[in-house]
Design a binder for these strands. Structure first.
Lengths: 132, 132, 132, 132
DNA sequence: GTGGTCTAGACCACC
DNA sequence: GTGGTCTAGACCACG
């Protein structure tokens, strides 16, 4: 799996990694039982410090998304967790507000925002198809 | 204008202020030429340090949303900054993908995401802000 | 004499006024003995507070550029002062550095900066001609 | 990189720092990708408060000259911001007029102004800074 | 009263 | 060690 990282981003690098892996699981590009790259390999591929990848893996393991088997590697869990629905809705509300601010500041209306959401959905669906 | 701040939030306080003001501009509750509260007044009202509010104002000024006139106050710019519409769409697509990832991670579908977008729209329109 | 003022400028308004009057004297558009607008008239024309204009006039008088005759008005002095040559050179060095930074950051070279200086000189010379 | 600061100057300290760094970039002494001193180190070296240096760095980042990477440091951007060449020329004309006004106010002529420009050019090239 | 600047010191997250 | 944030309090310049 390909990980892209931007050191200048305000989101910490280890969170960028976590986010991409979580999205890959949610989007079906990583399936339960799939093997992840070793943290050293991933670090080399993404040109970052191994410790940073390790931290991302550790956090994902603590959250129950992945599990490491000593000597064998790291794998996607059979039952990735659901985020608590209260937290999740709060996060989504934040993101939704951001999307709407971007739209209104650019002179768009609500329908235009929904249209863009639809386009993004199609793109994601295609990504899922390719992976299967 | 009413600003509510949550010091426990992971989003820095000055960013919470920025966001609420940007949303107010986007939502039309703050119009070009309107005067903002002095950073001291706002600080007192929100029970935070004046410098924290000032930092929010400074960043918004650097972004071109507001402008200050020494000794007179701070005002909403006549011409909020225009991003190229290509950039704007790219940014919105990014945000839209994030929203969908969050939805799918939580087991929601596309319609549920749109529903949350609708709720957020009402919140912005009403200027309501829950200090979650 | 026409005064234009920008309240959003980082240079204080009273300094903007001082600068324009000093430049007018230096450029020959205001000659020794010429009468200035009353500070009230100038304030009305430039849409600013009379006290602000008064402060500019007071400072210019303290520097010896203008003098007020009670009941008659304010006039350009017969012998406008020379700034101390040390101060003046320091100020010019600042301005010169700024001009060069602007040039180099924009990919221009030293000669291009001199060319722009020449153009500006011609413009000023024309302003002087029109006034005479 | 050596920064010299004069607390008695009318230009704010953080602006003095900004100016020197911008000049260093313009003059080629700081190249894209170069690492700047940490704001704490620079503060210690210049005997000022760390926040003051940080403010200078923050503003330069907002202007697009430098970028920071958390935990790693602050670096000169690969692509310093490009102003439209029309805007740039307008700004330079403004600065050029100011330089000439200062010259004529002090009884100098055009050639003297060019001479000072030459001196400033040498100063920038050498990275010398007199704490006048 | 308003913004502009500066200080000294603190705590946290990241690499 | 590096940047990110926040506080409390101070002094000045401007209008």
């Amino acid at each position: 799996m390909q990980i892209l990282v931007n050191p200048a981003d305000e989101l910490p690098i280890y969170r960028q990694i976590m986010r991409q892996i979580q999205e890959a699981i949610a989007g079906g590009r990583l399936k339960p039982g799939d093997k992840l790259a070793s943290h050293r390999d991933l670090a080399e591929q993404a040109v970052i410090a191994p410790l940073t990848v390790k931290k991302a893996y550790d956090e994902l393991e603590a959250l129950g998304f992945i599990e490491t088997q000593r000597g064998r590697g790291t794998f996607v869990c059979e039952k990735p967790p659901r985020i608590s629905s209260a937290d999740q809705r709060a996060q989504m509300r934040e993101t939704a507000r951001k999307l709407l601010s971007q739209a209104y500041l650019g002179g768009m209306n609500f329908e235009a925002a929904v249209k863009i959401l639809k386009e993004a959905d199609r793109e994601i669906a295609e990504g899922r198809k390719e992976a299967s």
